[in-house]
Design a protein around this nucleic acid. Sequence first.
DNA 1: CGTTGACACGCATACGTATGCAATTTAGGT
DNA 2: ACCTAAATTGCATACGTATGCGTGTCAACG
Lengths: 364, 364
Amino acid sequence: MAVTSHDVARLAGVSQPTVSRALRDEKGVSAATRRRVREAARSLGYVPSQAGRALSTRRSRKIGVISAELSNPFYPALLGPLHDALAGHGYRTVLFTDRGERPVELDPLLDGSLDGVVLTTSERTSSLPGELMARGVPFVMVNRTVDGIEADRCVAGNRVGAAAVAELLAHLGHRRVAAILGPESTSTGQERADGFRDALAHRGIDLPPARMVHGPFDPDTGRRGLIRLISTEAPPTAVFCGNDVIALGALNAAASLGIDIPGRLTIVGFDDIPMAAWEVFNLTTVRVDLPEMARSVAALLVERLAAPDAPARSVVLEPRLIMRGTHGPPRRDEEDYESAGPLHQMQPRIVRADTEWGRDASRT
Amino acid sequence: MAVTSHDVARLAGVSQPTVSRALRDEKGVSAATRRRVREAARSLGYVPSQAGRALSTRRSRKIGVISAELSNPFYPALLGPLHDALAGHGYRTVLFTDRGERPVELDPLLDGSLDGVVLTTSERTSSLPGELMARGVPFVMVNRTVDGIEADRCVAGNRVGAAAVAELLAHLGHRRVAAILGPESTSTGQERADGFRDALAHRGIDLPPARMVHGPFDPDTGRRGLIRLISTEAPPTAVFCGNDVIALGALNAAASLGIDIPGRLTIVGFDDIPMAAWEVFNLTTVRVDLPEMARSVAALLVERLAAPDAPARSVVLEPRLIMRGTHGPPRRDEEDYESAGPLHQMQPRIVRADTEWGRDASRT
DNA sequence: CGTTGACACGCATACGTATGCAATTTAGGT
DNA sequence: ACCTAAATTGCATACGTATGCGTGTCAACG
């Protein structure tokens, strides 16, 4: 059915190996022959079989990327640039989704159909890196890392970034500060929590367990977290969220509760995914340069493929505070929260102008 | 380096074909042998090579899915369920991104590494379906279709859905109605535009070119479209958007302009992607049951693979209006738009309660 | 004119799995 | 105990491409 290099060879009047060499521009093929072969291949519509090629070369030029479900907007934001960066090195991306429920299926990563793997969702105690290492499958960890694994990685300066948020909040005058954090089972969740708490402590601000909420990195964590924090006796005047997706959830809850942001409550996120810049959110956050992260990962992986035994390398991207419209000083009369009426009552919400918004923001 | 079925065979003291049969639970292998083989495979950590298997069987159990960039939230919303549906039939999904710029690379779809293809981004005049057909690659078109191609497809009732929006707007009393539509080069863009315009005309409402904006299905189209529409002499009191992503862009522009939704302006979308239900948007829209669409596509494709010569089938999903918080009657004093002050001045924005929101909305 | 390369090409084979068919063993029935 | 059929297993080979190696050709050079 399908046309093979043998068919091309027959038509061009040469042998199959010559077709293989001619089409890949290998030297050792005369210009005339090369032209005949190309012409024959074109007229037959020949497309080399990847299966055959992979079997013969033991390389697929495919990279597996393990991502969470795409409905979590963080991952498209990371995967887009990653796809492009890998394509720039001549590699195709194959996507594997890691729903948290059960562990990632291992076989498709080991069956030889991938030249390498990028891990984006690992939990701190994941066994996956160990397995890949044992099988000699080259891989790179990005964004999140795994405890005790010496392997190539590219991560954000999570502690530094979270500390910067703490500084900002302290500087604005906030004293009752809360946090809606990601899972402690992830390195990002852990590091951002630690960095934030430590920096607050350094400023003499306490972060009691009652003002810390943990949950998965999804909007519902932000929604529920905000509602819970806001319903306490002495509600916080500022909330740090473990990532932007959580922060967006928090902003949604605030909107439906009619809470004025940033008039009555400051919310700060982490990552600066593109949606954070949308006018309805206008989220003050910590930027992680995801395109840069993607480029870095692609470079690490490609170099690893070239030198399987080189020592592991670690790239840390320094984050940067992006001041948009969801932060401000605490209200003077923050004590009489009650005077504003029941929380579920609708309230006007001011949408602030953005100093740095729109499509370009993610490039600045 | 990698362990093959020959290694397993040697350890188990059988031939390689027996290993192949035993591990795939083919009949004709004694229970004892099967056990020995399994044990040997396990102890060696044997994983069958996909390349070898694909070469031998000429089937990969992989389906290529052509999608737009994932940063467009519509596609994750479609791809998630599609991935699951295909997995339910034992097929793995391989993602191909179609940035509009240049046509989709053809070779990876034809090199035999895919059993079938799902097209989600086709323009009405795309040549891709023709090429696939000529090569005998089974495929299904979803959401969008291509002119003059008789092939399996699953689409939404775009005309009906758009007409329902027109009915709603007319019923609410709107007379100055506008639309921010998708590209006329896509079937969805075209059909939704036609359905809307025709239904309006039937109600005696005109949709002059000055109140129609066209652009790609992205938020910026919505932003720019709304700004342009709002700056005219007699601005519309209601705007129909070609899909939710455009509508979200329009809502963002409205927020930054301080336009009260739905008090001063009604905005309606199409698709009901999960984000439409977010409290800050609370978008009134037309639901397309994407999970159902995904299941339907998977079924069509699987049956096509089983019966390559069966006649083409077409599935149309009837859409349904989802009434949330962005529609309302036109303002009485809609004439004196000017009295409300310059458009760029901040205005309070009311966020309405949602009768049907949150995570569950997409399942109802 | 013979020798030596360089160059172009074909032959043979490897890659790992699946499968048609023959060979062998086992079971069953009389 | 013998015959037949069924069950189990191995042999040979196909799938499509890439590559090491040998052969043949031709030009350049001494």
